[in-house]
Amino acid sequence: MPTNTVITAANEAFLRRINELSGEKVTRCEQCGICSAGCPLVAEMDRTPAEMMRMVQLGDEDIAKSKTIWICASCFTCTVKCPRGLDPSKVAEALRQLNLRKAVDYIDLMNIPKEEMEILPQIALVSAFRKLTG
């Protein structure tokens, strides 16, 4: 977890940007951890959803480079459970978008194995490309 106690203007700008993109007030998060407890993909993440929320609160831009934001599949389990009515899946989306809007792709869509392309349904490809290509 980040331990910086001095919030710089850059930190604050980052928090504001994520609030704006996600439409959430991330500072309302009380760090109860229910999002992390319910997340079906938390074991794959390098930061738990609650850590992600905390890092955004502190304006720590490293969260935008985390694996967590790409692992989140927007299953909305945290959305349903958050006692503060926050939607961490929207925060993860905002962080993904920060990357994707620089025309960065998280997956290489030209090199998906042929045998996989033959069986993958369109629904899988469309959603993966929406979430993971810029």
Partner: peptide, 15 residues
Amino acid sequence: YAASTLLEHYPEIAR
């Protein structure tokens, strides 16, 4: 002769 052929060569159509 399947949908996968177009997607395999031009996966970007799913975008």
